[in-house]
Write a protein that binds this DNA or RNA. Structure first.
Length: 890
RNA sequence: GCGGGGGUAGCCAAGCAUGGUCAAAGGCGCAGGCUUGAGGGGCCUGUUGCGAAGGCAUCCGUGGGUUCAAAUCCCUCCCCCCGCACCA
């Protein structure tokens, strides 16, 4: 020990001081803003453009959101350190109906919602009174509420370029959306059609799962309807089925016993429908009820199978469910357990499908196997039905002599028979929920409605998919596991209905009654960030030509226009998007749509380069839900622990793409650790004095060498977005190195200054306020440092030689501790026998001090004391150890 | 059901794509000691079991297998999470 600076020898004589994190954070936030530190303009530097899914401000910003936005901020700050010109913008997504819905609920005084607004969202009566329309509500959660997004983002110290801010309903942005869809229309990438949706007749609106009281997650199923003509009457029995291929095995038709059915005109034909079916189907087809007719009146009559022309009897039964599909069912006893049981052998089953493992009457096998006695055992019958369908569909073969059907698969037959029936005008389709009831919040039972004139984006287009697949292959996807996921999504993606009747948003340019729904208007909005400030300043009306010129360089009248030129310059500088950051649950829609849309609209040089998918955040083990009040608001975390501690905590426990469990107790610990770090840094800064030039000794070289290694690992992690691992290097490993250095007597102010300089820089992306503060303090002592921390110092080179000897000692020290641990004696003297030459690495003074006993180092060629003959165990790099107890013996 | 991702010591989690250097990093928590103006600070030590020695035994959801050698490769089973569309 050279004792140049006593205060640095452990333990610290200074009292615990800490710092006022809120004061420091506010100071720097204010300064960054005043200096417009994060506003980015095109220049000659290499650029880095990163965006994150824009928030939908329908409630408070909680720590889950904080993580989503802090991660890209850390990356943005890191890239600035690396010399990039970084654009990290933010906007607001207002499209859609939830905000509209929230305002309606407030206005109608819905109690539950008002309670949440007051207690969870922290809204005062005054706040509530000031909200009259959806924009008021959105504004409230964007920048008025203390729990709002903009305040939250600012208080976290996010380095967002607010000059590029806009919303999804900003008029000039809407122009871009219109441009995009007109392009799609031109390219025939949109199409019109009809589409089944969950619908509430009372509200006269489509409903989402979120709007439901009961029936969440229920799907819509397509039933195929086979029309059987009633013999001798102008009436059809529309038997609804999921298995039209079994039509060859139909032995009879079922109606519910003693039930009043309705004869109705359905698009020009007379159908017999249950009363429930009349209501349901009237939302899918034009249905005019004509008269009632009891099922008993039809019993015994015959109906004509449209394919086989066979006449089969109409039979009534109790198991028929009138609220499912049409309320009319075909009976296939060989392949449907229900039918088999209900017929009780009165009509012989007819096999039409053969499956390995089953007899010639498959339904019979299952009924016997499961011990089903009669049709009242619904649960068992349902299970048998499901199992049989699964097996037959997977492995069954058709054994009917009809057309090409013999020997064909069930799947093929199903498609084929649908085609045939439709062709001869005896096939139709009705939609039904997979499970009932489905009940709207208003209490009304929902129906399946067929929306016509719906517009679709043709994601099913094979050419388009091919382009997207190819581009995907060249993209950087983080984490790599998402590649498979994307690739599957592209395969399964169907046409997407992109028009809505309600909510905020941009109108479909050629169908002004419709609005472009929220996922579909946010596919290329990153491009607008690049020109948002130019557009706002210009305040001018733009048209399709404008975007053609700016985005596609089409030669037109905008050429030479100042605004257009500025926009074009900015766009071509910043685009393409380097990384898109989003939640992994958006892979099946938004993120994939983004790739589709870019490839369809822009030249390849502007297609997005990378996607980072984040994991979700849970709160103390539970899912966060604004609507249920299970949230931890950002505002609170910043107040409780500070912005830096919040940021640090959000990124340290798991990598960004893993799920994260927020625990306030841990966030608190981080706050303490930062306080400690601050103390330590100040101590080092205090110790810096000018004019002192000392030769670096072994420990100094070790500390700087190790720093080089840590920094290399840090850079590698950051380049791959492994922020957790980077933080572990930047904070904990650095801390450990520092401790060891001090413990080993290291105390050179110059070495420590160098060490601290890099330490601050490494931590800067994570805890920018504290780091800027420390940097400022450091500069007061070391004026030659750059004012901006962003001009980071290079890592010192790693010379393995500087590290080797110390590693040797560390290993030896560990071995000694392990050995001592198993010994129940007080060590008095420690003998170390090493390969000659290695003794140079053994700091016996240090060991003596640490172990409080005498230490004798004896190279193998100079062993003088070895009563137990341990010296022979010495190996290269691993000295032999002999411990002598207090009484001199062992 | 379909598709994707996981199960590692009290907790969070690293490692597994290139088997051995893995009793298995780091953090948290917990325990003990030190800091000779007593407790939310710091430093040190420990945290599967055994052990008068740096070792041995057992261990990485379950049960098998491959191998001189498996947390790491192959198979069986069990369990958990996330998407599945008109919703931001």
């Amino acid at each position: 020990m050279r004792g140049r600076n006593k205060s640095l020898n452990s333990p610290s004589p200074l009292p615990f001081m800490g710092y006022d994190f809120r004061a420091v954070e506010l100071k720097w936030q204010e300064r960054w803003e005043r200096e417009k530190r994060h506003e980015a303009e095109p220049d000659e530097r290499k650029k880095f453009f990163i965006t994150v899914a824009w928030p939908y401000p329908s409630g408070p910003m909680h720590v889950g959101h904080a993580r989503t936005y802090t991660f890209p901020d850390v990356i943005a700050r890191y890239k600035r350190l690396m010399g990039y010109n970084v654009l990290f913008p933010m906007g607001w997504h207002l499209t859609g109906s939830p905000i509209v819905g929230a305002v309606n609920r407030l206005k109608s005084g819905e109690e539950k919602f008002l309670g949440i607004a007051k207690n969870v969202y922290g809204m005062s009566d005054e706040d509530l009174g000031s909200i009259n329309d959806p924009m008021d509500y959105a504004r409230y959660f964007i920048d008025q509420s203390p729990m709002g997004y903009k305040k939250g983002m600012r208080s976290l110290g996010l380095s967002i370029d607010w000059s590029k801010e806009f919303t999804s309903i900003t008029p000039s942005y809407s122009r871009e959306v219109e441009w995009q869809y007109r392009k799609f229309l031109e390219k025939r990438l949109v199409t019109t059609g009809s589409h089944p949706v969950k619908f509430c007749p009372h509200d006269n609106n489509p409903v989402t799962d979120h709007d439901l009281l009961e029936g969440e997650g229920v799907d819509i199923q397509e039933f195929f309807v086979i029309e059987y003509e009633v013999d001798g009457e102008d009436l059809f029995l529309p038997a609804a089925t999921l298995r039209p291929e079994t039509i060859f095995g139909v032995t009879n038709l079922w109606l519910k016993r003693d039930e009043d059915y309705v004869v109705a005109d359905v698009e020009g034909k007379k159908w017999l429908l249950s009363r429930e079916a009349v209501r349901n189907i009237s939302y899918q087809k034009s249905v005019k009820p004509l008269e009632e007719r009891n099922s008993g009146a039809l019993e015994g009559k015959k109906a004509i199978n449209p394919i086989t022309r066979e006449r089969v009897p109409i039979i009534c039964a109790d198991f028929v469910q009138t609220d499912v599909a049409t309320g009319v069912v075909g009976s296939v006893p060989a392949h449907a357990p229900y039918d088999l049981v209900a017929l009780k052998g009165s009509i012989p089953p007819r096999q039409v499908i053969e499956v390995a493992g089953y007899s010639d009457i498959p339904a019979k096998d299952l009924v016997a196997q499961m011990g089903i006695r009669d049709e009242s055992e619904r649960e068992k019958l349902d299970e048998a039905t499901r199992k049989l369908y699964r097996d037959e569909r997977a492995r069954g073969t058709m054994i009917v002599n009809y057309g090409d059907f013999y020997g064909k698969s069930v799947e093929w037959a199903q498609k084929e028979i649908k085609k045939e029936l439709t062709a001869i005008g005896r096939g139709d389709v009705v939609y039904e929920f997979t499970k009932k009831p489905v009940i709207c919040r208003c209490g009304t039972e929902c129906v399946v409605k067929l929306v016509s004139d719906q517009w679709f984006i043709r994601y099913s287009d094979e050419e388009w998919k091919k382009t997207v697949r190819q581009w995907l292959a060249s993209m950087d996807l983080v984490p790599p596991e998402t590649r498979n996921y994307f690739s599957n999504v592209i395969d399964w993606l169907r046409d997407w209905p992109f028009t809505r009747l309600v909510g905020m948003g941009t109108k479909v340019p050629w169908a002004k009654d419709w609005i472009i729904e929220s996922l579909s208007d946010s596919t290329i909005y990153m491009s607008y960030y690049t020109i948002a400030d130019v557009m706002r300043e210009a305040k001018m009306e733009v048209d399709d030509d404008f975007f053609d010129y700016v985005f596609l360089s089409k030669d037109n009248r905008w050429k030479g226009n100042e605004t257009a030129e500025r926009a074009k310059k900015a766009f071509s500088y910043w685009y393409p998007l380097d990384y898109r950051v989003s939640a992994s649950e958006l892979i099946p829609n938004h993120l994939t749509f983004m790739i589709f849309h870019h490839t369809a609209l822009f030249p390849e040089e502007y297609w997005p380069r990378g996607i980072i998918s984040l994991g979700l955040v849970i709160l103390e083990g539970r899912m966060m839900h604004s609507s249920s009040g299970i949230i931890y608001p950002v505002a609170q975390s910043v107040e409780d622990f500070g912005a830096d501690a919040t940021r640090f905590y959000l990124l340290y426990s798991v990598e960004p793409w893993q799920n994260f469990d927020w625990r306030a107790s841990e966030a608190k610990v981080i706050g303490r650790q930062l306080q400690h770090f601050c103390d330590l840094a100040r101590e080092i800064i205090d110790s810096i004095s000018s004019g002192e030039e000392m030769e670096k000794d072994h420990m100094d070289l070790w500390l700087l060498g190790s720093l080089g290694k840590r920094m290399a690992a840090y850079l590698d992690s950051m380049e791959n977005f492994r922020t957790r691992s980077a933080l572990q290097m930047a904070f904990y490993e650095m801390m450990n190195d520092y401790r060891w250095y001090v413990r080993r007597g290291g105390d050179d102010p110059r070495t420590l200054k160098e060490f601290l300089e890099r330490w601050i820089v490494m931590l800067y992306p994570f805890t920018p306020h504290l780091c800027d503060e420390l940097w400022e303090m450091l500069r007061a002592k070391v004026p030659e440092l750059d004012e901006r921390i962003e001009c980071y110092p290079e890592a010192p080179p790693v010379k393995e030689g500087d590290l080797e000897a110390e590693e040797y000692l560390i290993n030896l020290f560990d071995d000694i501790k392990a050995a001592l641990q198993a010994l129940p004696i007080e060590p008095k003297a420690l003998y170390l026998y090493c390969i000659p030459g290695e003794e140079r690495a053994i700091d016996s003074a240090f060991l003596k001090n640490e172990l409080s006993c005498d230490v004798f180092v004896q190279p193998l060629n100079k062993v003088t004391h070895d009563p137990k003959g341990r010296a022979k165990r010495a190996k290269k790099g691993k000295p032999a150890i002999y411990v002598e107890g207090g009484d001199g013996s062992e």
